[in-house]
Design a protein around this nucleic acid. Structure first.
Length: 318
DNA sequence: CGGGTTTGACCGGCGC
DNA sequence: GCGCCGGTCAAACCCG
């Protein structure tokens, strides 16, 4: 769970060549929808005597952009392969070390939740595979029908006893239960943002680490998150609380959120952390970006988005 | 007063 | 069939 030990796979993409004339920063709008199209990408429709030269220059630029795009795609491919290789190695280790613990002497039925807890603390990705495989063999039909589930791990303050996981959605608690395999109570939530939303959430503290909340999501939201609709930061309060997020998805999704103050940062140990400080904000952004780029699915989607963006711009040009 | 939370009761699935 | 256990319900309660 220690991001500092991970290989830095952050995309240090060289976007500058894309900018023909403008030196305006593109950080915020780099991969998203730009507030307005930069004029340097717009085709000059005004007829001029230098139209042939401009056309040639644009062609040359297009070739250069295409080449850049190809290089980026290669970089992403290599990065994804490296990531997958490392992940597979880690999973092998996890399987070897975790097998005997996971299948202990007490062969209680349906102990998937506890297994997952033990497993996931050590590894964000694919940690459900062992238990879901077990469940698959026992009740395959239910697994097919079963709604898509995902899991999120939120590290909270040690003294924080609340079972609140802010994820950008509005939840209504409808039950709480103390389960057998975990002394900490498990809270049951339904999505109350949309009445028809079928998503449910279970939140329980990890057996191993009481400061870690394990949120299990069932189903998929049929509405946008509160952040998407309001633009506010009610959900993942990245601006106010230092956090790191890592995504690992392979059919199912695991999300890890570290909402505690960064232990590795010396500044964080100072009397009162100034989370609004620009350097802290930048650190958070970089940490988020770094974590996101570690996910092969994200990088693949990013590559597709970049490619699509370039194609779109090419189409607007020609 | 309306919406959210708490908490005991209830239900259904599963193992023995 | 019985008991255990997780999940859900719903009345009481709380709060703004």
């Amino acid at each position: 769970m220690d991001n500092s030990s991970w290989v830095d796979t952050s995309l240090d993409l060289n976007i500058n060549p894309l900018r023909v004339k403008s030196d305006a920063p593109v950080d915020a709008e780099r991969f998203g929808v730009p507030r307005k199209m930069k004029p340097t990408f717009m085709f000059q429709t005004k007829p001029s005597a230098n139209s042939k030269e401009e056309t040639g220059a644009i062609e040359e630029e297009l070739n250069r952009v295409s080449e850049e795009n190809r290089k980026l795609t290669e970089m992403l491919t290599v990065m994804c392969e490296d990531y997958n290789a490392l992940r597979n190695q880690l999973m092998d280790c996890m399987c070897k070390n975790g097998e005997k613990e996971l299948h202990g002497p007490s062969k209680k039925r349906k102990s998937a939740s506890s297994n997952n807890n033990d497993n996931n603390i050590a590894m964000n990705g694919n940690s459900e595979s062992s238990s879901t495989d077990e469940e698959l063999s026992k009740k395959p039909r239910e697994e097919v029908i079963k709604a898509k589930t995902s899991r999120a791990y939120v590290r909270t303050e040690a003294g924080d006893k609340s079972l609140i996981v802010k994820d950008g959605y509005q939840w209504r608690k409808y039950g709480q239960k103390v389960t057998r395999d975990n002394p900490s109570p498990r809270a049951y939530f339904k999505c109350s943002f949309a009445p028809s939303c079928p998503v449910k959430k279970k939140v329980q503290r990890s057996v191993d680490d009481q400061s870690v909340l394990v949120a299990t999501y069932e189903g998929e939201h049929n509405h946008p998150s509160m952040e998407a609709t309001s633009g506010s930061s009610h959900g993942l309060t990245l601006g106010s609380v230092p956090c790191s997020a890592s995504l690992a998805s392979s059919g199912k999704t695991n999300i890890t959120l570290d909402l505690t103050k960064s232990k590795s940062s010396n500044e964080a140990k100072s009397s009162k952390p100034k989370t609004d400080a620009p350097e802290v904000r930048q650190f958070l952004v970089e940490q988020m970006a770094s974590s996101l780029t570690k996910d092969p699915n994200f990088t693949a989607a990013l590559a597709a988005a970049i490619s699509g963006r370039m194609l779109q711009q090419n189409h607007t040009k020609w």
